[in-house]
Structures are given as C-alpha cells and as structure tokens.
Amino acid sequence: MSVSTLPRRRRLLTGVATLAVSAVVLTGCTSNEPEPTGDTGGGTENAASSNDDTGETVTIGFSGPAADHGWLAAINSSAQAEAEKYEDIDFQTAEGTNDPSAQIAQVETFINNKVDAIVLLPTDGAALTDVAIKAMDAGIPVINVDREFSSPFAARTTILGDNYGMGVSAGTYACQLIEDNDIADPVIAEIAGIDSLPLTQDRSQGFKDALEACDQEVDNRVAAEFTVESGNEAAANLLQAEDKIDIIWNHDDDQGVGVKAAFDDAGRDEFFFIGGAGSKNAMQWIKDGEMEATVLYPPTQAADGIRLARLIAQDKGMSDLVQVEVPKRIVLNAPVVNADNVDQYFDLGFES
C-alpha cells in the first residue's frame, strides 16, 4: 500500500500547540524601563507596555554546539537571528564546539566580560555544570538549553525539548493510523538514534508506552547514529529483516535522509513513514505524499533561550502568566506534523 494512496483520516493527537508558543508567551508585558539588577531572580514588576519595546541594552553571551548536524546548525542560526531582532541586545557568540574544555573556556570568558546573561547549550551537561554555577555565583543568569546540567544551581532557567513526549506523540499517532486504516496484526518498526544517549532511550520509552496503550509493540528495532550514512545502513538492515512493515518511526530527520534513500533503493513504500525532529526535507516529503508525518523536536530552543535571557536580564517576566517571573523550567511541545498542518510548521523546519 503506497503512502500516497492511504486514507487521510487523521487527528492531530498532541494538540496543535505550535513551536511559536513561547514566542506568543514572551511578547507580553511587565516592565517597560526596568532598573538593572545583578541578581538572578528576574521579574519583579508589572506594567502595561510590550516586552518587545526597546529597553536597556543587555549583553548576552551564547555558546552552542559545532554545526555538524542540521538540527544543531539550526540551534545556532536561530539564536543569532533572534538576537538580531532586538536593538537592546548586544550579542556575543562563541564559536560552536563539541569540546567541553573549549566550551568551559568560552563561558569563563563571558564571566570575565561581565555579560548580563549566558545562553548555553552544553556539549556535556555534567562537564559544564561547575562553570555554569560559577557564572550564577557571579550574578550572571544562565539559561540552559536542551542538555541539562547536573545541579539545579547551575541555571536560572532551563528550556528543553520533550524527548519522551516525541515518542509518545509518534506512538499515539501510530495507534491512530492502525485504527483509521483497520490494520490487523500490524508490523511496527523503529529506527532509533544513538542508543547510549538518554534522549534516545527517552524517545524509545515514550514510543513503547504509547503503543502499549493500544495493545501494540515494536516488532523490529534498529539503531543508527544521527547521520545520513548510519540511517541508510540501519534502514537497509531493517528492510532485509522484514518482508512487510506497516509503520516505521525514525527518531531523527537528519539521519532520515539516509533512511529515505534506503526505502527508495529497495522500492519499499508499503508502510506509514513517521519521522522525528522536523526538518524541511521531511516536511517536503509530507507535502509530496512520500512521508506520513514527523514529530517535532524544536530547533528554536536557543532562540527562545535568547528571549528568556533578555527578559531576565532586563528584570521582566512573562505577561501571559500570573507569575511575574520567568519560569524556572520550560518544556516545549512535541506535536505531530502531517499533511493537514504541514504548511503551519514548514517555516520552522531546519535544513538537513
């Protein structure tokens, strides 16, 4: 059964909460002309003007990963683009790196430069914890993105994607496909990322738990390494092992380029193909009828981190909340994107 000929009776199962949710929340108001503060509390006043109004200039240091992966490249570029939207942000960015020692040195430079806030996607959360605490102790709020530190004292605010939620969204959507298409005894396959990573384990656990809710399980699971080459190899092995598959969930749309190539090389399209992360490639395949859906893991996390850093450094809060301070922890949604709503999300996709 070709993906393009399958019935389009779908529901968006995770709610259509867009990745711009934080963008909506963060455009409210509390303080128009905040008094500068050296503490890391953030947000003590309410007022009536927009938080997007130009305020006192704040210096924000950003350290992110080496851009050796489409999603990671989007993290860096979205942070830069967001900072450029604000006249009151002096943006200092360090060169992307996968070396914890180099990133520690970058954060220490930010501390020595007495920046007003630091947005940090750590190469290794545990390795960067001590220097993040050092920044916090110096009165510089740290906004932790995607990979958590090992101490609650290392960050003023943490903003995360939802890895477990990705799995739940993919599994719940798979259950709905089974029901909508009256698939008896479905064969469900999973192409994971790097198995040793907690994020991969969380995604797989969420998928498993969601499938259990409709009395299903994964019949064949293989793991790749978040690269095109590894995705191609893992998918080829999977297809050789299974003559017929009904649903495949691939964790990562970057490795999905290789996965899709393996499908095309084998001439196999009898299954519903679900991706993960939300690349433009995947969204175009959805538009072209070559892929069923993808589950988002927003590459806007660092951009949201920049907005939060600005609010905290200017002693503002989030006006759409009753609470006057920026929250301590924010977890972004993991919605399903399919043919029904792909146009809504397409511009948020990243280039693989």
Rank of each mutant, 00 (worst) to 15 (best):
F272I: 11
L26G: 14
P299M: 01
R221I: 08
A266G: 06
D180V: 05
N32Q: 13
A48Q: 11
T27N: 15
L19Q: 10
A23H: 12
G55R: 09
T129A: 03
A155V: 01
P186D: 12
A339G: 09
D219A: 11
T18C: 12
M318V: 14
L321Y: 12
I60V: 14
R268N: 07
N181K: 12
I194K: 15
F271R: 04
S49W: 14
G267I: 00
E148D: 15
L120Q: 03
G171W: 01
Y164V: 03
F273D: 06
V295A: 07
Y164C: 02
D124C: 02
L332I: 05
D39C: 10
V257K: 12
A48M: 14
H69K: 09
F346P: 02
L308A: 05
L26P: 02
L296V: 13
R8W: 00
Q255P: 05
H69A: 10
G275E: 02
I286G: 13
E179F: 05
R10A: 13
A192R: 09
E95R: 11
I248V: 15
I306P: 00
D185A: 10
G267V: 00
L121K: 03
P186A: 10
P152V: 10
K114R: 11
V187Q: 15
G61I: 08
V322L: 08
A293M: 14
V145K: 04
M291Y: 06
Q240F: 02
Q201E: 11
Y173H: 06
V119D: 08
N250H: 11
A20M: 08
D195I: 06
Y345R: 07
E212S: 13
V168H: 11
A67R: 02
E35N: 09
G256M: 01
T172H: 04
G70F: 08
D90C: 03
T59C: 00
D53R: 11
L197R: 13
E225T: 12
A81W: 02
L238Y: 03
P327I: 00
S230G: 13
S279R: 00
D202G: 00
D254H: 13
G267R: 04
S31V: 14
G28I: 08
N144H: 05
G43A: 06
F271S: 07
A138N: 06
E87Q: 15
S196D: 08
S352W: 00
M1G: 12
T123C: 10
A261T: 11
R221W: 05
D182A: 13
P7S: 14
A261V: 04
E351N: 12
V257Q: 05
A79D: 08
D340I: 01
A302C: 01
I104K: 10
L296N: 08
D162N: 14
L160T: 13
G161I: 03
A223L: 09
D52K: 03
I245A: 06
N220Y: 15
D347I: 06
S319D: 07
E233R: 13
D288M: 10
G61R: 09
V336L: 12
T227L: 05
D88E: 04
F149V: 10
M291D: 06
V168G: 07
A67S: 07
